[in-house]
Design a protein around this nucleic acid. Sequence first.
DNA 1: TTGTACGCGTTATCAA
DNA 2: TTGATAACGCGTACAA
Lengths: 340, 340
Amino acid sequence: MRRVTIKDVAKAAGVSLGTASRVINANTSVDPAIRRKVQDAIAALRYQPDAVAQSMRRRSTRTIGAIVRDITVPALASFVQAAQQALHDEGYALLIACSGDRRDHELELLRLLSQRRMDGVIMTTAAEDDAELAAVRAALPMPVVMLDRTPPGAFDALLLDHREGMRQAVEHLLRLGHRRIALITGATGVHPARARVQGFRDAHAAAGVAIDPTCLRTGSFTDQSGFLEASALLGRPDPPTAIVAGGIDMLSGVLRAIQARGFAVPRDISVIGSADTDLAMLASPPVTVVRWDYAELGRAGARLLIDRLSGGAALPPRQILFPTEFISRGSCAPPSRQHC
Amino acid sequence: MRRVTIKDVAKAAGVSLGTASRVINANTSVDPAIRRKVQDAIAALRYQPDAVAQSMRRRSTRTIGAIVRDITVPALASFVQAAQQALHDEGYALLIACSGDRRDHELELLRLLSQRRMDGVIMTTAAEDDAELAAVRAALPMPVVMLDRTPPGAFDALLLDHREGMRQAVEHLLRLGHRRIALITGATGVHPARARVQGFRDAHAAAGVAIDPTCLRTGSFTDQSGFLEASALLGRPDPPTAIVAGGIDMLSGVLRAIQARGFAVPRDISVIGSADTDLAMLASPPVTVVRWDYAELGRAGARLLIDRLSGGAALPPRQILFPTEFISRGSCAPPSRQHC
DNA sequence: TTGTACGCGTTATCAA
DNA sequence: TTGATAACGCGTACAA
């Protein structure tokens, strides 16, 4: 029970293999009668071209590799799904891999994607300035689109304007009267954390308010880190009166910490999250957030890659900056007296 | 700037192509000194075998295709991620595709995975008894593992015991005194919906309570469907006193509907969800749920496929039934008088 | 133990 | 317009 190949089609249609290939790829002209015969044979035999052999010959797998931190984070999943759909429409498939934000995993995945001859890669990175990562990334023989990262080198990139988003968020809190605002975000080795810290500083500077450096917590973008940092902050004799969760999936950790300490939102503490989630919308009170559209990023990423793959190999790198949106909800209020 | 092939390695090491291949695949014995030379050449040239050519020659892509409904549903994402990790450990990659629960998309994806010569497929299906889907599925030349589906035919399958889970949930509500309990779930063309309806009936039968057929809503497994069905139920003159959301991502829709109607949980209405989510845990009050471990299913699915791919092609189909767990939280209470 | 040569299924080139 | 043929990069049977 062999698979049917183009040879079988040719034989069944009584033509040469080359002719069969020609009608399949429909590029050059072929006698209508013959074309018909070949098409009939294809239908009769239920012939499907072998994508592996095509990849071999065409030197293109029509497959894109994606490296994300954690696909169980809904925002990242919606990015991946949107990218997959857009790529699918162009005949590309998506190979997915999760790095868990670990550089060793990321290195291995990079090798994997290169070995499997992906036509392109769309990825984040755990550390923009890591020398080995940068070297491997730069040596990749296919176009790369960076997701919310700006490593050294010329890469296409999808960037979010976290700086402005954070500035707005902190400005909002300062206007409410907060003077001890904490920011919990990821390691500053990557754009989103750096940008948020900048925005945090921007807003304070504009208001002429000094930052308590111990209120600036940069660890990792995990839920758990959100929990630990928030717990530590709230356990102090002088807890902040507001916390901004500066990471996609950190809000739930922060809220758990608040709940565990018995603080009430927004009476005892104001909270702002990053990225809009079921949690932020349905918590009581609903949580004020800086949101953005990750699905749009996914589509744009697909676009960027497809452009490169269809003739645009030599285009200068394009970095697209996507705006964030500030959504005010019930989780922020003026600080209560006893915490001032 | 050509890619370096095994030929280059052979030349650099001063051996034949066959010998180079032998040391790479380390199957037969080769002179230690020569092996050394080849390995040095590999390192010097940074040679990486071409996975496409290997697939061609070995007739195996070491790639598994996954078809899920919607990867932005965190439970499904954690399934996919766990499967991907387990497969990765065995040298397999995962190609991901989302069907949106639409049969035409599913058909197309099935063709895609077959054309791309996946070594195996792990999938759900929008409709178990659809003739065309069943035919294409059965004609697939690679092993298939069904995720929470039992289509006709001999397939490996990962099945959840939704029936028992639902029975426990409804039993709980009946014990609290509820007599008008609504179940909102997906179309009964698939195992999870059918099993839940059975469990729903089981519990009622055991308690000798009649079911109001209009309280049994089987539509689709979407958040939106949860919202619409719940809205309709709550808008009646005789609304149910309890609603069970019988679908992974339906709870948020149900809660939104409840909130929109101004009902309070659990005073005006009791709620039980399916699958444990941030939402269920952090809502106020936290929502009672039937939960299970989707990551475990992902790992088991990988195991099933790998077993088949390593010699177990002729094994009888294995269907694994995974238990659910009933987690009682604050969203259920005895029905209040005015609704009785 | 090593080298040679074939074939995996395609596409593309070159004559006819 | 068509047919024969050479790659693509690799693994392996067979011969040496």
